[in-house]
């Protein structure tokens, strides 16, 4: 009951947040040399942060599943993996749209872009494995999520040595105050949305798993 109320509260917060976000983004000052194109920042960065957050959640939940074998862990892992693909798709769409006017290219093999792309690919692979792998694929998918999460710092580091262009992490702490407000609101709205989607997706997966369990019980009992 409390959990449901919390999820509903998050949903309401996300709706309100995404409703007022465009206004705040519109009001925010224009960036010095990027002008209007910088506005996408308020949508791109939270999505990118959630891409990594959901991947880590999925990796940790998968490790939990492999250790305990409890289906609940697997539900969270699968739900979060699905969200990684969703937020990754948002990040990888808004990114090139911004990169084109800002850098003059759609894509560059830079540490952050490459890491995001590979992470996204790993979780798309996760989805493919679960969708087409048949029985036993949940473990392979869990292994993929764990390896994928370990991979993130390695990819980042290796590509960073290879070449770099993307703005660094010191952008956010030095943000102007009138730009910080819409940014933080965007972050909040996105994170609330993440919690709502994660809870909803995990609940669906749990329900599916229960139906399957009951089905098997029925088969064992000779009811079908």
């Amino acid at each position: 009951m409390l959990k449901r109320a919390l999820v509903l509260l998050c949903a309401a917060g996300a709706v309100v947040g995404f409703f007022i976000l465009p206004d705040l983004v519109f009001e925010a000052p224009l960036a010095y040399n990027l002008f209007i194109t910088q506005k996408i920042f308020y949508y791109h960065v939270p999505a990118a942060i959630l891409l990594f957050t959901s991947a880590i959640v999925s990796g940790v939940a998968s490790a939990g599943y492999l250790k305990t074998r409890r289906g609940g862990w697997d539900d969270v892992a699968a739900a979060s993996a699905w969200l990684t693909v969703v937020f990754g798709a948002i990040t990888l769409t808004t990114g090139p749209i911004w990169a084109r006017p800002a850098w003059g290219v759609w894509w560059t093999w830079e540490a952050r872009l490459t890491t995001a792309l590979l992470l996204w690919l790993i979780f798309v692979a996760y989805g493919i494995v679960r969708r087409f792998g048949g029985p036993g694929s949940d473990r392979l998918a869990a292994g993929l999520a764990v390896f994928g999460s370990i991979n993130v710092p390695l990819v980042y580091y290796s590509v960073n040595v290879w070449r770099t262009m993307h703005p660094t992490t010191n952008v956010i702490p030095t943000l102007r105050r009138d730009m910080l407000a819409p940014f933080l609101l965007g972050m909040l709205a996105y994170h609330l949305l993440f919690v709502v989607l994660l809870a909803a997706r995990a609940a669906i997966l749990r329900a599916e798993r229960r139906v399957e369990d009951v089905h098997e019980l029925a088969l064992d009992a000779g009811l079908e």
Binding site: L118, L121, I122, A125, I128, V129, F132, G133, G134, P135, G136, S137, R139, L140, G143, L144, F147, G148, N151, L154, V155, S158
Partner: peptide
């Protein structure tokens, strides 16, 4: 690890490179 995990699953031949290559990229 991946080939071992894939043993019981269907479509092993296709899924192995799909799971393997992204992780091996670094």
């Amino acid at each position: 690890v991946f080939a071992g995990m894939l043993l019981p699953t269907r479509a092993r031949a296709v899924l192995l490179p799909i799971a393997l290559y992204p992780v091996l990229t670094p």
